[in-house]
Design a protein around this nucleic acid. Structure first.
Lengths: 232, 232
DNA sequence: CGTCCATTTGAGGTGGATCAACCCTAGTGG
DNA sequence: CCACTAGGGTTGATCCACCTCAAATGGACG
Protein backbone atom coordinates (compact mmCIF):
# COMPACT_ATOMS: atom_id res chain seq x y z
CA UNK A 1 0.00 0.00 0.00
CA UNK A 2 1.19 3.45 -0.82
CA UNK A 3 -0.11 5.58 1.98
CA UNK A 4 -0.22 4.18 5.43
CA UNK A 5 -2.52 6.67 7.08
CA UNK A 6 -4.95 9.45 6.40
CA UNK A 7 -4.17 11.88 9.18
CA UNK A 8 -1.39 14.38 9.43
CA UNK A 9 0.10 13.32 12.72
CA UNK A 10 2.64 10.56 12.19
CA UNK A 11 1.96 7.33 14.03
CA UNK A 12 4.97 5.79 15.66
CA UNK A 13 5.17 2.68 13.62
CA UNK A 14 8.77 1.70 14.16
CA UNK A 15 9.51 0.43 10.72
CA UNK A 16 13.08 1.48 10.46
CA UNK A 17 15.88 0.03 12.47
CA UNK A 18 19.23 1.73 12.16
CA UNK A 19 19.26 4.13 9.29
CA UNK A 20 20.42 3.00 5.90
CA UNK A 21 21.49 5.67 3.41
CA UNK A 22 18.97 6.96 0.88
CA UNK A 23 21.66 8.41 -1.30
CA UNK A 24 24.83 6.40 -1.46
CA UNK A 25 26.93 9.55 -1.23
CA UNK A 26 26.64 12.25 1.42
CA UNK A 27 23.41 11.25 3.08
CA UNK A 28 22.63 13.98 5.56
CA UNK A 29 20.47 11.88 7.81
CA UNK A 30 22.93 9.07 7.81
CA UNK A 31 25.76 11.36 8.75
CA UNK A 32 23.93 12.42 11.86
CA UNK A 33 21.89 9.44 12.80
CA UNK A 34 24.52 6.91 11.92
CA UNK A 35 26.80 8.52 14.45
CA UNK A 36 24.54 8.13 17.36
CA UNK A 37 22.60 5.00 16.58
CA UNK A 38 19.33 6.87 16.20
CA UNK A 39 16.27 4.93 15.16
CA UNK A 40 14.23 6.40 12.34
CA UNK A 41 10.57 5.86 11.62
CA UNK A 42 9.16 5.70 8.11
CA UNK A 43 5.95 7.43 7.26
CA UNK A 44 3.92 8.25 4.18
CA UNK A 45 1.83 11.20 3.12
CA UNK A 46 -0.64 11.42 0.26
CA UNK A 47 -0.44 13.95 -2.53
CA UNK A 48 -1.42 17.41 -1.22
CA UNK A 49 -1.34 16.27 2.41
CA UNK A 50 0.00 18.70 5.01
CA UNK A 51 3.05 17.50 6.91
CA UNK A 52 3.17 20.39 9.34
CA UNK A 53 1.82 23.92 9.47
CA UNK A 54 3.54 27.27 9.81
CA UNK A 55 4.34 28.12 13.46
CA UNK A 56 3.50 24.59 14.55
CA UNK A 57 5.79 23.07 17.22
CA UNK A 58 8.67 21.30 15.51
CA UNK A 59 8.51 17.80 16.88
CA UNK A 60 10.22 15.91 14.07
CA UNK A 61 12.97 16.28 11.53
CA UNK A 62 12.28 14.67 8.16
CA UNK A 63 14.11 13.19 5.23
CA UNK A 64 12.42 12.51 1.91
CA UNK A 65 12.77 8.87 0.86
CA UNK A 66 10.52 9.02 -2.21
CA UNK A 67 8.24 11.78 -3.48
CA UNK A 68 8.51 15.54 -3.14
CA UNK A 69 7.61 18.21 -0.58
CA UNK A 70 7.08 21.98 -0.74
CA UNK A 71 7.84 24.40 2.11
CA UNK A 72 5.97 27.68 1.96
CA UNK A 73 4.61 30.76 3.68
CA UNK A 74 1.22 32.35 3.09
CA UNK A 75 -0.01 35.93 3.30
CA UNK A 76 -3.43 36.52 4.84
CA UNK A 77 -5.08 36.83 1.42
CA UNK A 78 -3.67 33.54 0.18
CA UNK A 79 -0.62 34.71 -1.75
CA UNK A 80 1.97 31.99 -1.35
CA UNK A 81 5.75 31.92 -1.47
CA UNK A 82 7.37 28.52 -1.74
CA UNK A 83 10.80 28.70 -0.13
CA UNK A 84 12.09 25.34 -1.29
CA UNK A 85 11.27 21.99 -2.79
CA UNK A 86 12.48 18.88 -0.98
CA UNK A 87 13.42 15.89 -3.12
CA UNK A 88 14.58 12.36 -2.27
CA UNK A 89 17.54 12.50 0.10
CA UNK A 90 16.79 16.04 1.32
CA UNK A 91 16.33 16.79 5.00
CA UNK A 92 13.60 19.26 5.89
CA UNK A 93 11.77 20.53 8.95
CA UNK A 94 15.01 21.01 10.88
CA UNK A 95 14.64 23.96 13.24
CA UNK A 96 16.96 25.48 15.76
CA UNK A 97 13.98 27.02 17.53
CA UNK A 98 10.87 25.28 18.74
CA UNK A 99 8.48 25.97 15.84
CA UNK A 100 8.38 25.52 12.08
CA UNK A 101 8.93 28.75 10.17
CA UNK A 102 7.24 27.44 7.02
CA UNK A 103 4.48 24.95 6.38
CA UNK A 104 5.24 21.72 4.51
CA UNK A 105 3.03 19.65 2.19
CA UNK A 106 3.55 16.56 0.10
CA UNK A 107 3.42 17.51 -3.59
CA UNK A 108 2.87 13.90 -4.63
CA UNK A 109 2.60 10.71 -2.61
CA UNK A 110 5.67 10.86 -0.43
CA UNK A 111 7.52 8.64 2.02
CA UNK A 112 9.76 10.19 4.65
CA UNK A 113 11.98 9.04 7.45
CA UNK A 114 11.68 11.00 10.63
CA UNK A 115 13.42 11.32 13.94
CA UNK A 116 12.32 13.27 16.97
CA UNK A 117 13.84 16.71 17.14
CA UNK A 118 14.37 16.20 20.85
CA UNK A 119 16.61 13.23 20.25
CA UNK A 120 18.72 15.17 17.78
CA UNK A 121 19.00 18.02 20.24
CA UNK A 122 20.02 15.57 22.91
CA UNK A 123 22.65 14.03 20.66
CA UNK A 124 23.95 17.49 19.75
CA UNK A 125 24.33 18.22 23.43
CA UNK A 126 26.82 15.38 23.82
CA UNK A 127 28.41 15.02 20.43
CA UNK A 128 29.96 18.14 18.90
CA UNK A 129 30.12 16.37 15.52
CA UNK A 130 26.35 16.15 15.52
CA UNK A 131 26.06 19.77 16.62
CA UNK A 132 28.39 20.79 13.81
CA UNK A 133 26.36 18.87 11.27
CA UNK A 134 23.07 20.45 12.35
CA UNK A 135 24.65 23.89 11.99
CA UNK A 136 26.00 22.99 8.54
CA UNK A 137 22.57 21.84 7.38
CA UNK A 138 20.91 25.07 8.51
CA UNK A 139 23.74 27.03 6.86
CA UNK A 140 23.06 25.14 3.63
CA UNK A 141 19.42 26.19 3.76
CA UNK A 142 20.53 29.77 4.41
CA UNK A 143 22.74 29.73 1.35
CA UNK A 144 19.84 28.56 -0.79
CA UNK A 145 17.63 31.27 0.67
CA UNK A 146 20.25 33.94 -0.06
CA UNK A 147 20.54 32.82 -3.68
CA UNK A 148 16.77 32.77 -3.92
CA UNK A 149 16.45 36.31 -2.56
CA UNK A 150 18.65 37.49 -5.43
CA UNK A 151 16.42 35.63 -7.87
CA UNK A 152 13.19 37.00 -6.39
CA UNK A 153 14.42 40.55 -5.97
CA UNK A 154 16.39 41.10 -9.15
CA UNK A 155 16.01 38.49 -11.90
CA UNK A 156 13.64 38.68 -14.87
CA UNK A 157 11.00 36.03 -15.50
CA UNK A 158 13.14 34.24 -18.09
CA UNK A 159 16.18 34.31 -15.81
CA UNK A 160 14.15 32.85 -12.97
CA UNK A 161 12.84 30.00 -15.08
CA UNK A 162 16.33 29.29 -16.42
CA UNK A 163 17.69 29.18 -12.86
CA UNK A 164 14.87 26.86 -11.84
CA UNK A 165 15.49 24.46 -14.71
CA UNK A 166 19.21 24.29 -13.98
CA UNK A 167 18.51 23.69 -10.28
CA UNK A 168 16.06 20.88 -11.00
CA UNK A 169 18.35 19.42 -13.64
CA UNK A 170 21.13 19.26 -11.07
CA UNK A 171 18.92 17.80 -8.37
CA UNK A 172 16.69 15.32 -10.11
CA UNK A 173 17.80 14.62 -13.66
CA UNK A 174 18.36 10.95 -14.48
CA UNK A 175 19.71 10.08 -17.91
CA UNK A 176 19.50 13.73 -18.97
CA UNK A 177 15.76 13.85 -18.34
CA UNK A 178 13.90 15.37 -15.40
CA UNK A 179 10.45 14.43 -14.18
CA UNK A 180 9.08 17.46 -12.36
CA UNK A 181 6.82 16.49 -9.48
CA UNK A 182 5.26 19.96 -9.18
CA UNK A 183 2.68 21.84 -11.24
CA UNK A 184 3.11 25.22 -12.96
CA UNK A 185 1.45 27.04 -10.08
CA UNK A 186 4.00 25.60 -7.63
CA UNK A 187 6.82 26.68 -9.90
CA UNK A 188 5.31 30.15 -10.14
CA UNK A 189 4.94 30.41 -6.37
CA UNK A 190 8.55 29.33 -6.01
CA UNK A 191 9.80 31.89 -8.55
CA UNK A 192 7.54 34.79 -7.60
CA UNK A 193 5.67 34.57 -10.93
CA UNK A 194 2.24 33.51 -12.15
CA UNK A 195 1.73 30.05 -13.60
CA UNK A 196 1.00 31.64 -17.01
CA UNK A 197 4.33 33.45 -17.06
CA UNK A 198 6.13 30.21 -16.21
CA UNK A 199 4.28 28.41 -18.99
CA UNK A 200 5.12 31.11 -21.53
CA UNK A 201 8.80 31.05 -20.60
CA UNK A 202 8.92 27.26 -20.97
CA UNK A 203 7.14 27.46 -24.33
CA UNK A 204 9.63 30.02 -25.52
CA UNK A 205 12.58 27.85 -24.45
CA UNK A 206 10.94 24.94 -26.24
CA UNK A 207 10.49 27.00 -29.41
CA UNK A 208 14.18 27.94 -29.27
CA UNK A 209 15.15 24.30 -28.99
CA UNK A 210 16.74 24.78 -25.57
CA UNK A 211 14.54 22.12 -24.03
CA UNK A 212 12.29 19.29 -25.09
CA UNK A 213 9.05 18.01 -23.58
CA UNK A 214 7.59 14.55 -23.26
CA UNK A 215 4.49 15.57 -21.41
CA UNK A 216 4.34 18.89 -19.59
CA UNK A 217 6.42 17.68 -16.65
CA UNK A 218 8.99 15.56 -18.44
CA UNK A 219 11.70 17.92 -19.58
CA UNK A 220 15.04 17.32 -21.21
CA UNK A 221 17.57 20.13 -21.45
CA UNK A 222 19.07 20.25 -24.91
CA UNK A 223 21.41 23.19 -24.37
CA UNK A 224 22.59 23.88 -20.85
CA UNK A 225 25.09 26.48 -22.04
CA UNK A 226 22.39 28.68 -23.57
CA UNK A 227 20.29 28.21 -20.45
CA UNK A 228 23.23 29.41 -18.34
CA UNK A 229 23.45 32.51 -20.53
CA UNK A 230 19.79 33.25 -19.93
CA UNK A 231 20.45 33.00 -16.19
CA UNK A 232 22.31 36.34 -15.82
CA UNK B 1 40.19 60.11 14.66
CA UNK B 2 37.26 58.31 13.21
CA UNK B 3 38.79 55.70 10.97
CA UNK B 4 41.88 53.94 12.05
CA UNK B 5 43.06 52.63 8.71
CA UNK B 6 42.51 52.93 5.01
CA UNK B 7 42.81 49.39 3.86
CA UNK B 8 40.26 46.64 3.98
CA UNK B 9 42.29 44.06 5.80
CA UNK B 10 41.92 44.52 9.55
CA UNK B 11 45.14 45.08 11.47
CA UNK B 12 45.41 43.14 14.66
CA UNK B 13 45.45 46.01 17.05
CA UNK B 14 44.41 44.32 20.23
CA UNK B 15 42.23 47.03 21.64
CA UNK B 16 39.66 44.93 23.32
CA UNK B 17 40.33 42.79 26.34
CA UNK B 18 37.50 40.56 27.37
CA UNK B 19 34.33 41.47 25.60
CA UNK B 20 31.91 43.87 27.19
CA UNK B 21 28.31 43.84 25.97
CA UNK B 22 27.27 46.30 23.27
CA UNK B 23 23.64 45.84 24.08
CA UNK B 24 22.86 45.35 27.76
CA UNK B 25 20.37 42.60 26.93
CA UNK B 26 21.04 39.55 24.76
CA UNK B 27 24.37 40.43 23.27
CA UNK B 28 25.15 37.72 20.77
CA UNK B 29 28.87 38.19 20.78
CA UNK B 30 28.97 38.34 24.54
CA UNK B 31 27.03 35.15 24.86
CA UNK B 32 29.61 33.32 22.85
CA UNK B 33 32.81 35.08 23.57
CA UNK B 34 32.07 35.67 27.22
CA UNK B 35 31.81 31.91 27.67
CA UNK B 36 35.20 31.13 26.40
CA UNK B 37 37.23 34.17 27.28
CA UNK B 38 37.75 35.17 23.69
CA UNK B 39 39.56 38.40 22.96
CA UNK B 40 37.96 40.72 20.46
CA UNK B 41 39.63 43.31 18.28
CA UNK B 42 38.03 46.62 17.39
CA UNK B 43 38.26 47.97 13.90
CA UNK B 44 36.77 50.80 11.86
CA UNK B 45 35.66 51.17 8.28
CA UNK B 46 34.87 54.34 6.39
CA UNK B 47 31.58 55.04 4.67
CA UNK B 48 31.28 52.87 1.52
CA UNK B 49 34.33 50.79 2.41
CA UNK B 50 34.22 47.07 1.63
CA UNK B 51 34.55 44.77 4.64
CA UNK B 52 34.74 41.56 2.65
CA UNK B 53 33.79 40.41 -0.83
CA UNK B 54 31.48 37.67 -2.06
CA UNK B 55 33.17 34.25 -2.08
CA UNK B 56 36.12 35.60 -0.11
CA UNK B 57 37.52 33.29 2.61
CA UNK B 58 35.70 33.95 5.87
CA UNK B 59 38.47 34.73 8.29
CA UNK B 60 36.58 36.83 10.82
CA UNK B 61 33.18 37.12 12.43
CA UNK B 62 32.02 40.66 13.09
CA UNK B 63 29.75 42.59 15.41
CA UNK B 64 28.66 46.14 14.68
CA UNK B 65 29.54 48.49 17.53
CA UNK B 66 28.52 51.74 15.84
CA UNK B 67 27.46 52.45 12.26
CA UNK B 68 25.69 50.24 9.74
CA UNK B 69 26.61 47.54 7.22
CA UNK B 70 24.90 46.09 4.14
CA UNK B 71 25.30 42.49 2.95
CA UNK B 72 24.55 41.92 -0.72
CA UNK B 73 24.91 39.87 -3.87
CA UNK B 74 25.48 41.18 -7.37
CA UNK B 75 24.49 39.90 -10.80
CA UNK B 76 27.05 40.21 -13.58
CA UNK B 77 25.37 43.33 -14.99
CA UNK B 78 25.41 45.12 -11.65
CA UNK B 79 21.91 44.43 -10.39
CA UNK B 80 22.19 44.18 -6.63
CA UNK B 81 20.17 42.43 -3.94
CA UNK B 82 20.83 43.47 -0.36
CA UNK B 83 20.07 40.53 1.91
CA UNK B 84 20.26 42.36 5.20
CA UNK B 85 21.31 45.48 7.03
CA UNK B 86 23.47 45.09 10.12
CA UNK B 87 22.98 47.61 12.91
CA UNK B 88 24.70 48.14 16.26
CA UNK B 89 24.73 44.90 18.24
CA UNK B 90 24.23 42.68 15.17
CA UNK B 91 26.64 39.90 14.36
CA UNK B 92 27.46 39.39 10.68
CA UNK B 93 29.91 37.49 8.52
CA UNK B 94 29.34 34.26 10.45
CA UNK B 95 29.70 31.31 8.09
CA UNK B 96 29.50 27.60 8.62
CA UNK B 97 31.52 27.07 5.44
CA UNK B 98 34.84 28.59 4.55
CA UNK B 99 33.72 31.52 2.38
CA UNK B 100 31.39 34.49 2.60
CA UNK B 101 28.18 34.04 0.64
CA UNK B 102 27.52 37.76 0.37
CA UNK B 103 29.74 40.81 0.25
CA UNK B 104 29.65 43.36 3.10
CA UNK B 105 30.21 47.12 3.02
CA UNK B 106 30.02 49.89 5.59
CA UNK B 107 27.05 52.13 4.78
CA UNK B 108 28.40 54.91 7.00
CA UNK B 109 31.53 55.15 9.12
CA UNK B 110 31.39 51.98 11.17
CA UNK B 111 33.22 50.38 14.06
CA UNK B 112 33.10 46.62 14.52
CA UNK B 113 34.46 44.07 16.93
CA UNK B 114 35.85 40.97 15.35
CA UNK B 115 37.09 37.57 16.35
CA UNK B 116 38.78 34.98 14.20
CA UNK B 117 36.40 32.44 12.78
CA UNK B 118 38.95 29.75 13.53
CA UNK B 119 38.86 30.53 17.25
CA UNK B 120 35.07 30.31 17.29
CA UNK B 121 35.24 27.00 15.44
CA UNK B 122 37.78 25.76 17.94
CA UNK B 123 35.61 26.84 20.86
CA UNK B 124 32.59 25.16 19.28
CA UNK B 125 34.60 21.97 19.03
CA UNK B 126 34.95 21.80 22.79
CA UNK B 127 31.95 23.65 24.16
CA UNK B 128 28.54 22.47 22.97
CA UNK B 129 26.98 25.67 24.32
CA UNK B 130 29.05 27.64 21.86
CA UNK B 131 28.18 25.24 19.07
CA UNK B 132 24.51 25.60 19.93
CA UNK B 133 24.75 29.37 19.86
CA UNK B 134 26.43 29.45 16.45
CA UNK B 135 23.66 27.25 15.09
CA UNK B 136 21.02 29.51 16.64
CA UNK B 137 22.56 32.60 15.07
CA UNK B 138 22.60 31.03 11.61
CA UNK B 139 19.03 29.88 12.15
CA UNK B 140 18.07 33.46 13.01
CA UNK B 141 19.54 34.65 9.72
CA UNK B 142 17.64 31.90 7.92
CA UNK B 143 14.39 33.03 9.47
CA UNK B 144 14.99 36.57 8.28
CA UNK B 145 15.81 35.30 4.80
CA UNK B 146 12.61 33.22 4.71
CA UNK B 147 10.52 36.23 5.68
CA UNK B 148 12.33 38.30 3.09
CA UNK B 149 11.69 35.75 0.33
CA UNK B 150 7.96 36.15 1.01
CA UNK B 151 8.34 39.92 0.74
CA UNK B 152 10.37 39.78 -2.46
CA UNK B 153 8.27 37.15 -4.15
CA UNK B 154 4.76 38.19 -3.20
CA UNK B 155 4.34 41.61 -1.60
CA UNK B 156 3.40 44.83 -3.40
CA UNK B 157 5.66 47.89 -3.34
CA UNK B 158 3.64 49.56 -0.58
CA UNK B 159 3.60 46.37 1.50
CA UNK B 160 7.38 46.06 1.15
CA UNK B 161 7.98 49.62 2.27
CA UNK B 162 5.58 49.19 5.20
CA UNK B 163 7.41 46.01 6.25
CA UNK B 164 10.73 47.82 5.96
CA UNK B 165 9.60 50.73 8.11
CA UNK B 166 8.27 48.44 10.81
CA UNK B 167 11.50 46.43 10.78
CA UNK B 168 13.66 49.53 11.09
CA UNK B 169 11.36 51.01 13.72
CA UNK B 170 11.79 47.86 15.78
CA UNK B 171 15.53 47.72 15.29
CA UNK B 172 16.69 51.30 15.53
CA UNK B 173 14.00 53.64 16.77
CA UNK B 174 14.95 55.75 19.78
CA UNK B 175 12.29 57.95 21.34
CA UNK B 176 9.86 57.05 18.57
CA UNK B 177 12.19 58.38 15.89
CA UNK B 178 14.44 56.47 13.53
CA UNK B 179 17.56 57.76 11.80
CA UNK B 180 18.04 55.66 8.69
CA UNK B 181 21.70 55.18 7.83
CA UNK B 182 21.00 54.06 4.25
CA UNK B 183 19.98 55.91 1.09
CA UNK B 184 16.89 55.28 -1.03
CA UNK B 185 18.85 53.15 -3.47
CA UNK B 186 19.94 50.81 -0.66
CA UNK B 187 16.35 50.52 0.51
CA UNK B 188 15.26 49.75 -3.05
CA UNK B 189 17.94 47.10 -3.46
CA UNK B 190 16.85 45.55 -0.16
CA UNK B 191 13.17 45.51 -1.15
CA UNK B 192 13.56 44.55 -4.81
CA UNK B 193 12.31 47.97 -5.97
CA UNK B 194 13.80 51.07 -7.59
CA UNK B 195 14.73 54.07 -5.50
CA UNK B 196 11.95 56.08 -7.19
CA UNK B 197 9.30 53.57 -6.14
CA UNK B 198 10.58 53.67 -2.55
CA UNK B 199 10.48 57.45 -2.58
CA UNK B 200 6.93 57.53 -3.96
CA UNK B 201 5.71 55.07 -1.33
CA UNK B 202 7.27 57.11 1.47
CA UNK B 203 5.75 60.32 0.07
CA UNK B 204 2.36 58.67 -0.05
CA UNK B 205 2.65 57.51 3.56
CA UNK B 206 3.70 61.03 4.49
CA UNK B 207 0.70 62.51 2.68
CA UNK B 208 -1.57 60.12 4.58
CA UNK B 209 -0.08 61.22 7.88
CA UNK B 210 1.22 57.75 8.66
CA UNK B 211 4.76 59.03 9.05
CA UNK B 212 6.59 62.29 9.51
CA UNK B 213 9.96 63.44 8.18
CA UNK B 214 12.65 65.63 9.65
CA UNK B 215 15.06 65.35 6.77
CA UNK B 216 14.74 62.50 4.30
CA UNK B 217 16.32 59.94 6.64
CA UNK B 218 14.79 60.98 9.94
CA UNK B 219 11.42 59.30 10.12
CA UNK B 220 8.84 59.10 12.86
CA UNK B 221 5.98 56.63 12.61
CA UNK B 222 2.72 58.31 13.56
CA UNK B 223 0.43 55.34 13.06
CA UNK B 224 1.94 51.89 13.40
CA UNK B 225 -1.47 50.23 13.27
CA UNK B 226 -2.23 51.60 9.80
CA UNK B 227 1.26 50.62 8.70
CA UNK B 228 0.62 47.09 9.89
CA UNK B 229 -2.56 47.03 7.82
CA UNK B 230 -0.62 48.07 4.73
CA UNK B 231 1.76 45.16 5.39
CA UNK B 232 -0.60 42.37 4.24
C1' DC C 1 -14.76 7.19 -24.44
C1' DG C 2 -15.66 10.94 -21.47
C1' DT C 3 -14.50 13.85 -17.67
C1' DC C 4 -11.52 16.75 -15.18
C1' DC C 5 -7.93 19.39 -14.31
C1' DA C 6 -3.34 21.00 -15.75
C1' DT C 7 -1.40 23.49 -19.26
C1' DT C 8 -1.16 26.51 -23.13
C1' DT C 9 -2.29 30.48 -25.62
C1' DG C 10 -4.48 34.95 -26.51
C1' DA C 11 -5.97 39.78 -25.46
C1' DG C 12 -5.81 43.52 -22.74
C1' DG C 13 -4.66 46.00 -18.37
C1' DT C 14 -1.43 47.83 -14.83
C1' DG C 15 2.10 48.31 -11.20
C1' DG C 16 6.37 49.42 -11.04
C1' DA C 17 10.45 50.59 -14.09
C1' DT C 18 12.62 53.95 -16.86
C1' DC C 19 13.84 58.39 -18.35
C1' DA C 20 14.01 63.13 -17.21
C1' DA C 21 13.68 67.41 -14.66
C1' DC C 22 13.77 69.70 -10.59
C1' DC C 23 14.48 70.45 -5.66
C1' DC C 24 16.55 70.32 -1.26
C1' DT C 25 20.21 70.34 1.91
C1' DA C 26 24.62 69.44 3.87
C1' DG C 27 29.09 70.47 3.12
C1' DT C 28 32.77 73.70 1.09
C1' DG C 29 35.22 77.45 0.30
C1' DG C 30 35.44 82.26 -0.30
C1' DC D 1 28.40 84.26 7.17
C1' DC D 2 26.79 83.36 2.88
C1' DA D 3 27.09 81.76 -2.07
C1' DC D 4 28.11 77.71 -4.51
C1' DT D 5 28.14 72.96 -5.45
C1' DA D 6 27.29 68.12 -5.53
C1' DG D 7 24.78 64.30 -4.32
C1' DG D 8 20.55 62.55 -2.56
C1' DG D 9 15.72 62.87 -2.92
C1' DT D 10 11.29 64.00 -5.12
C1' DT D 11 8.12 64.27 -8.74
C1' DG D 12 6.31 63.83 -13.48
C1' DA D 13 5.59 61.42 -17.98
C1' DT D 14 5.86 57.45 -20.43
C1' DC D 15 6.84 52.58 -21.19
C1' DC D 16 6.75 47.69 -20.80
C1' DA D 17 7.24 43.15 -18.44
C1' DC D 18 4.39 40.69 -16.21
C1' DC D 19 -0.35 40.05 -14.42
C1' DT D 20 -5.20 39.22 -15.15
C1' DC D 21 -8.96 37.40 -17.37
C1' DA D 22 -10.60 34.30 -20.75
C1' DA D 23 -10.81 30.46 -23.80
C1' DA D 24 -8.95 26.51 -26.11
C1' DT D 25 -6.18 22.34 -25.81
C1' DG D 26 -4.41 18.18 -24.05
C1' DG D 27 -3.27 14.35 -21.15
C1' DA D 28 -4.32 11.20 -17.33
C1' DC D 29 -7.48 8.31 -15.43
C1' DG D 30 -11.84 6.23 -14.45
Amino acid sequence: MLTQTLNTQPINTQIGGKIAPVHPVSDQFGEIAGHIGLVATEFSYRKEEEIYGEDEPSEYVYQVVTGAVRSYKLLSDGRRQIGSFHLPGDVFGLESGSTHRLAAEAIIDTTVRLVKRASLEKAAGTDVQVARKLWAMTAGELRHAEDHMLLLGRKTAMERVATFLLEMDRRLAVAGMMALPMCRRDIGDYLGLTLETVSRALSQLHAQGILGFSGARQIVLRNRARLHNLDA
